[in-house]
Design a binder for these strands. Structure first.
Lengths: 350, 350
DNA sequence: CATACATATGATTGCGCAATCATTATTTGC
DNA sequence: GCAAATAATGATTGCGCAATCATATGTATG
């Protein structure tokens, strides 16, 4: 049995008891005196609508305070305008610049980001992915190239554009935008060796990428004839505390490093703090090398030598590539692998 | 009973060419040999379904790799399971602990968060809100109590539960969970005065809450007979650089502070760095007071005195209150205003 | 043993929008 | 001046799911 026609009452109740979510395309259409689909077009593809109609619709939208329901729109169009971004952590993070730039650029194009914090755990990443796939994101951005088998399988079979960022490898799932951590380790070893350092130590987080850099550093030093490199590896996340304790542990174990290479600027700042507390001069008594070139690296005392990664640029690249994909949906998709590189930054600390 | 139904219906192509998003409730229902609505119930309200049926459905879901479409579910149920969270910044942020805890707890309850970064701009907040309201979030969390007129109006008329966090005021939009920045300013003044400090200076970000604390501090000092408090106020966001430059500026303008009160631990660390670079001893030559008690405060050298806010607790509270609201949708909603307080932390620097 | 009552499942409908195709004005070409 | 092309708008349908109501079993109660 058909219900009483709502349309009979062609008056749209414009009272304030109606909530923002209460108005639909149909309400706007009635106010504007056009069909619902014309309103839809006026909002989504204005170039197909005459200026006159556009103006009528605009006024009606403003009048009722219409806010399109993206759940309905997404269901109908199969485009959620949502990008899922997974990061290991958001606190004091080397990723913040990248995420910021990524979100900004996606936002300008009408896409919103949904953030998943994995805590450096592949299991967490997997469960977050399960939860987020239900939103049918148009794109997915992950940090690193290590994922659980199920994560990889789901990502591949989802058919959604996937970006693996902040690392480099030979068999990416889809799009790859990052840099080689092995190359960083090697370059740091060569650079510091060339500056004359011979007694190295390492304080590093035990995340996959930190370990890659550490191993590459140690390997390269071995090539250069340096066999003994004391290391402190701790479970992520990295904070100042790990840096302080790392240096303490190194010294208490009898290491006499000329230089401590750290897995991040944050760790390096901890090492600086511990050195200061022991009255050690930097770099005279002990030199320190960071990684990431956070904004703070140049501002701490003494200024921290580091490796610059330009997260903002990487984030912008990711956004560009994704948006490009979204634009040419059906078209043949070229393989994208971008090495974003890195730059050694010489300051005072090493 | 044998599970004949799975074999008898061969209309479902179970090949791997189907994408994860390709299967629907109906497909699962056919495989399980039940009606679609029973599958829906088995997934959303399992207590209403017999164990036997539950098992059939569970197996069918696993078999086809079904992932519910939350766009469709949200449209039908008018529940997006989405919470919008607006923060001024995500970099090196005093808010990270809170956001982390908030997202974690919401996530456990099946809610996801969509993050908006406002850059301390009310206009950005307003435009982000416009974009995000289209997703029909079930809840909205904002930092602070200052918003544009349009933002307030939209929030109120949306009928969505709104949390204003990290501040306190008399006329919140809806839920209020935070602490009084005036009280912090006053408490810091009293505390440091009691410790014997008399020549104060301030280095503060010019965000609304920083200014509140600064004004309250200066007012209280005046009560205590201290009339001259040199201040450096800079536009947010705060980084180490602002701290270093702040101290430089103070000193170059002829201020001779015994103590520098900072609007955040980050600023304070900048002041510490600048002091170190000038050979000033802390706290003997100059004392430093932070705010926020970031994890790093206790780890820098010298250890930083600060004001602890327990962001993780605040985030957890926000999540609890929101989830409670979501549970009793229709019911009468009591007014919620929680003062989360703060704790002065005495360390070495002041 | 009949009434009430709980438990388990199903049929129908509509959420708000965009895709698709159809239709009507308006212009262009020669 | 008339067919063909273009521009502008509309009608219908279905996206995938949950709310609502209806129905079919069983189980207690006096």
């Amino acid at each position: 049995m058909p219900r009483q026609s709502i349309d009979k009452d062609s008056e749209i109740p414009l009272d304030k008891t109606r909530q923002a979510s209460g108005f639909t395309l149909i309400d706007v259409a009635k106010v504007a005196g056009v069909s619902p689909i014309t309103v839809s077009r006026a909002l989504n593809r204005p170039e197909l609508v005459s200026d006159q109609t556009l103006e009528k619709v605009r006024r009606a939208v403003a009048l009722v305070g219409y806010i399109p329901n993206m759940l309905a729109g997404g269901l109908a169009s199969k485009q959620s305008k949502l990008v899922a971004v997974f990061v290991p952590t958001i606190a004091h993070s080397i990723f913040s610049d990248m995420v910021q730039a990524l979100m900004d650029q996606l936002g300008e194009a009408g896409y919103q980001s949904i953030l998943g914090v994995t805590g450096y755990s592949l299991e967490k990443e997997e469960s977050l992915l399960g939860a987020i796939l239900g939103r049918r994101p148009d794109g997915i951005v992950l940090m690193g190239t290590e994922h659980s088998a199920l994560t990889r399988q789901r990502l591949v079979s989802s058919g959604i554009p996937v970006v693996e960022a902040w690392d480099f490898c030979e068999d990416p799932i889809d799009i790859l935008i990052g840099f080689s951590h092995e190359a960083v380790g090697k370059a740091v070893a060569d650079h510091l060796h060339a500056k004359g350092y011979r007694r190295f130590s390492v304080v590093s987080a035990g995340d996959p990428r930190g370990i890659k850099r550490c191993k590459a550093l140690v390997n390269e030093l071995r090539e250069l004839g340096i066999m003994d490199v004391p290391q402190v590896i701790f479970p992520p996340p990295a904070t100042l505390k790990e840096g302080r304790e790392g240096l303490s542990q190194l010294l208490s174990e009898g290491a006499k490093p000329e230089i401590v290479v750290c897995s991040s600027d944050t760790v390096a700042q901890g090492v600086l703090a511990e050195a200061a507390s022991r009255g050690l001069r930097v770099p005279e008594d002990i030199a320190v090398m960071g990684f990431g070139d956070l904004g703070s690296a140049a501002q701490v005392y003494p200024a921290l030598s580091s490796v610059r990664l330009d997260g903002a640029r990487v984030g912008g690249l990711i956004a560009s590539v994704l948006l490009e994909r979204f634009r040419n949906q059906g078209a043949h998709q070229a393989q994208v692998r971008i090495d974003t590189g890195f730059t050694l930054i010489d300051r005072v600390s090493a």
